[in-house]
């Protein structure tokens, strides 16, 4: 059941990116590339040769593999069906630090190409991920107070209907704060635009400018998997525990599909903010999360 759900998650990941893009196409009045575009892209990229930039070293060669491996390792311990591979013993901190380890390698891989655009992307990625970290940990603190333990599966054991009724304000605040984290970590509008074609305005894409072939396939797949993983985290935080693993699994994936849809709508109706505004938005998210903790503790 555990392994099955991880494999299912791994297979479904590119689909959700398709949902986002299809939603955006609908809002833009286009026919869109179809739900399965990313699968085809991945197959195409795997068959291509791997170009490597001149000054690069083994760091560049392994960076995308490490980055993907970190997301896979995080997905493997995620409690997809209410409990993961030993996720009752995995501290929630580890989940986010493993993702950070993968990001570290993407960043130094980008710096290894030795070019201004990739350096710029790497610099921005580190800036934003540094600032988002406090928000993540306040949200984790909130979940610990709510659920009473530090392991991943217990902080994701969901919110009962009773708790929803009693502290809906705090829950909504945390949802918004973590949704901001989700958008930033996945480099979506309003923090980053995955479709921009200008190197100067890129963050995540800029780090991949010189990545090609199977490495690019790894990078795109890692991005899709991370998108699904954090969306699932957001969903699992809030849905009530049903007790049935299959129902839980279905509701997590349904929730992820819904979050993808919402993200598509958000991306269609909002513009990207200026880089200098991002720290302010993150500070806002931090304040919301702290306020939620305050409400939960005091009311």
């Amino acid at each position: 059941m555990n392994i099955l759900s991880v494999i299912l998650a791994a297979l479904l990941a590119p689909l959700f990116i398709g949902i986002v893009n299809q939603t955006k196409a609908f809002f833009g009045g286009r026919r869109g590339p179809g739900l399965f575009r990313l699968y085809r892209d991945l197959f195409k990229l795997v068959r291509k040769s791997c170009p490597r930039p001149q000054p690069s070293t083994w760091i560049f060669d392994i960076s995308q593999s490490v980055s993907l491996a970190s997301v896979i390792a995080a997905a493997a311990v995620f409690p997809w069906a209410g409990f993961g591979l030993g996720s009752t013993m995995v501290p929630a901190v580890l989940f986010f630090y493993i993702l950070a380890a993968g990001r570290f390698f993407t960043v130094i891989g980008a710096l290894d190409a030795g070019n201004a655009f990739e350096g710029m992307g790497a610099s921005r990625e580190m800036q934003f991920s540094t600032l988002v970290e406090p928000v993540v940990f306040v949200v984790l603190g909130f979940l610990v107070i709510l659920n009473g333990d530090v392991s991943l599966s217990s902080i994701l054991s969901g919110v009962s209907v009773e708790t929803w009724r009693e502290s809906i304000v705090a829950l909504i605040l945390v949802f918004v704060a973590f949704y901001a984290v989700f958008l930033l970590e996945n480099c979506r509008v309003p923090f980053d635009d995955p479709e921009t074609h200008l190197e100067l305005t890129m963050i995540h894409e800029a780090m991949l400018l010189d990545v090609g072939g199977v490495d690019l396939a790894f990078a795109l797949y890692a991005a899709a998997l991370k998108f699904m993983l954090l969306a699932a985290f957001l969903v699992a935080m809030f849905i009530p525990q049903s007790g049935n693993a299959w129902v839980h699994l279905a509701s997590v994936f349904g929730g992820v599909a819904f979050i993808s849809l919402v993200t598509g709508v958000v991306e269609s109706v909002t513009a990207r903010v200026r880089f200098f505004k991002t720290p302010q938005m993150l500070l806002g998210a931090l304040l919301m999360a702290s306020l939620a903790v305050f409400f939960l503790a005091c009311f």
Binding site: I59, V107, I108, L111
Partner: peptide
């Protein structure tokens, strides 16, 4: 610890990336 972790990753990414990698 969260803020320290993020900043430390940035500082060490810089020292690896700028001293040992690239041109």
């Amino acid at each position: 610890l969260a803020l320290t972790g993020g900043l430390a990753a940035t500082a060490y990414a810089k020292s690896i990336g700028c001293a040992f990698l690239g041109e």
